[in-house]
Design a protein around this nucleic acid. Structure first.
Lengths: 151, 151
DNA sequence: TAAGATTGTGGGTAGAAGTGGGTAAAAAAC
DNA sequence: GTTTTTTACCCACTTCTACCCACAATCTTA
């Protein structure tokens, strides 16, 4: 089984400690640790959150996608830069924690309380307030999309 | 026989114990335990209930669909998040019980008394009072739909 | 009907998970 | 080259979880 088949789900509340360390849910660690070097890549997410990919996910999906983007349009160039320049490979410490970069901590307004959610092939790290304030999907939209994913 | 052919039916009353554990009807356990890792996925249901899918159900219906969705549109991102963040893989303990997450327990207003019903390919977990109220509302539609599904 | 098996419920406990802090090595600054 | 800051590793403590055993009530079967 490849690591890309692993799916991250669930929601977890943690706190950044005084040293700026962030715990990673133990349910997610197994997808990161053994054959996957215990490393993953953190960078800027879409809606003011921090995203974390297992390195294989990052390489196959993100890097591959970024390579496809034509760099003739300035819009694309800006996008590719903003994704890659803030991307950092991080490693779990002995207790399963990571260290966020100052930029990402600032970008996602992470102070002390942090909410981590699993989103299929990646992990998202949020300020709890921001996550709550994200506009909920309208019911019509939800129903439309539920045709694709039958609940 | 594949697990997807299994159909859940019936209604059962249980109680959440002091540790927050919830018994799963023994009639449902056989569809979950042996070849299916004993795991299933619990998440938010449509009408303030908690739904539980056997993992294979979840993977074939939900995961497969979610992976197809492009995350470039915010609408899609909201949808994927709203599905995965509340989903948790749980395992039956030796006595056939599961542990609900605090969020889902709160969402479905589950305190002590709990009603579990089988709904074809999934299980629904309800506050008994909520379930009764829903039933009353849908009574007038029952006859209409009975034309399609002949009982 | 009696005996055994199954099921629902409760609780103890070892180990895991989350959190905090000390310290030495490494990096950066002076 | 020395000092200061930062990082990473280690250990410690608390809380929580999962596993185990127990037992009464119900169901099954001989």
């Amino acid at each position: 089984m490849t690591i890309t088949e692993n799916t991250f789900t669930g929601e977890f509340n943690y706190t950044l400690d005084s040293k700026g360390r962030l715990n990673i849910p133990s349910k997610f660690r197994s997808a990161l640790s053994p054959e996957n070097d215990g490393n993953f890549v953190i960078t800027k997410g879409m809606d003011r959150c921090v995203v974390a990919y297992p390195v294989v996910e990052w390489q196959s999906r993100v890097e591959a996608g970024l390579r496809e983007l034509s760099s003739t349009s300035q819009r694309n160039r800006l996008f590719v830069r903003s994704v890659t320049r803030y991307a950092t490979t991080v490693r779990l410490d002995g207790q399963g924690r990571i260290q966020l970069t100052p930029y990402l901590k600032d970008y996602a307004c992470l102070d002390r309380d942090v909410r981590i959610i699993g989103v299929v092939n990646k992990i998202e790290i949020w300020n709890p307030d921001d996550l709550e304030n994200i506009e909920e999907l309208s019911l019509e939209d939800f129903d439309d999309l539920s045709d694709i994913v039958i609940l």
